Simulated scan of single mutants.
Amino acid sequence: MIDTARLADWMDAAGLPGKGEPLEARFLSGGTQNEIYLLTRGEEQSVIRLPPENAPADRDKGILREWRITAALDGTDVPHTPAIAVCTDHSVIGRTFYLMGYVDGWSPMGARNGWPAPFDTDAEARNGLAYQLAEGIALLSKVDWRAKGLHDLGRPDGFHDRQVARWTSFFEHNKGRELDGMDVATNWLRENKPLDFIPGLMHGDYQFANVMFKHGKPAQLAALIDWEMGTVGDPKLDLAWMVQGWPEDMHSPAAANTSYVNLTGMPTREQLVAHYAEVSGRQVDDLDYYLVLAKWKLAIVLERGFQRAGDDIKLQSFGPIVPKLMREAAELAESTEYKS
């Protein structure tokens, strides 16, 4: 729990609204990486994001990284949570934290049992959700990250070499089984990496789970959220990460059985990629490379969870997903004639 008395004193000293009003904190979500609470003080509402109490000390660096990105998005076209304040003084509540504006919207993570009204019955409005999703990272890719002081957030030089080296090493460290197709996909990525790309701000885990929408139609993004993986790199990996699981047939059973949302009748991958290209101004002719990288990387990320699953049913469910992703990466690599 949060010591609301000490937090309120800090907020007063920082000159934040609501001085003198009682402060209430309500837990919204969280796990091993972050905890999120809704703060209410009179008529003022904000959100606090902080590491859990037992988090390692280096998690503070992650919180500050998220804060830098959140603050940098102010004044841009990217839908985001407003940056309010950050605190690194552990004497306040024992952890580094930051405050951001409360977003009155809804998350697709709550759409496991169907899209909320009016998107459940209005196909055109529902299509807008997908186009808005693609538009979010297109706008993100256009942010002038140097002007926003993010020149040292990532290392775009050698980005693709490091992706392959880092995640191959990560897999070997957590290795519990062989994955069919991994050698094929890994070698292909090494041999076909883009020779040139336009660096940009990346989300790192871009999908429906990490955005919020405004209520009602037309579909409008309210905010991109959860910046743990944010960096400066190659934004087209965000695009591939978003669409790598998009089915070929948007009216097939596969469209209805994605991990947490029903994509039936949504725009096709080609339509979303075209919309991204139009908004971002980036060419997407080499998207196959990024799709191979996205499937390959996601397989390795999920494999780590599977190898540490224990009795966790969710992590256990990654077991059959991982080999499928890696085979898809290898098959796409073998079928692609693109050479950078």
Score class of each variant (00 low, 15 high):
179 L>E: 03
340 S>R: 08
97 F>K: 00
263 L>K: 08
10 W>R: 00
88 T>S: 13
108 P>N: 10
29 S>V: 03
191 E>L: 15
62 G>W: 04
183 D>L: 08
109 M>I: 13
66 E>Q: 14
17 P>S: 05
189 L>Y: 06
328 E>T: 06
149 G>M: 00
221 L>M: 13
240 A>T: 06
336 T>E: 09
46 S>H: 06
309 A>K: 13
63 I>K: 01
181 G>D: 09
120 D>R: 09
135 E>S: 14
140 L>F: 06
164 V>E: 11
219 A>Y: 04
219 A>W: 04
130 A>F: 07
143 V>W: 00
295 K>G: 01
202 M>D: 09
166 R>H: 14
108 P>Y: 03
127 N>K: 13
52 P>M: 07
79 P>S: 08
339 K>M: 10
10 W>I: 00
79 P>Q: 04
324 K>M: 15
11 M>F: 02
170 F>I: 01
99 L>S: 00
91 S>L: 08
277 A>V: 05
188 W>C: 04
266 M>S: 14
48 I>G: 02
161 D>W: 02
339 K>C: 13
162 R>E: 12
3 D>S: 09
177 R>L: 10
61 K>E: 14
338 Y>P: 04
38 L>W: 01
288 D>V: 05
334 E>V: 11
335 S>I: 03
96 T>W: 00
20 G>C: 08
271 Q>D: 10
23 L>R: 02
36 I>T: 15
154 G>F: 06
195 L>A: 13
111 A>D: 14
102 Y>E: 01
83 A>Y: 02
313 I>Q: 14
25 A>H: 04
57 A>R: 14
311 D>I: 12
111 A>R: 13
100 M>S: 14
135 E>C: 09
274 A>Q: 12
85 A>T: 01
153 L>V: 03
316 Q>K: 14
46 S>T: 14
146 R>E: 15
247 P>E: 07
191 E>R: 15
11 M>V: 02
153 L>M: 08
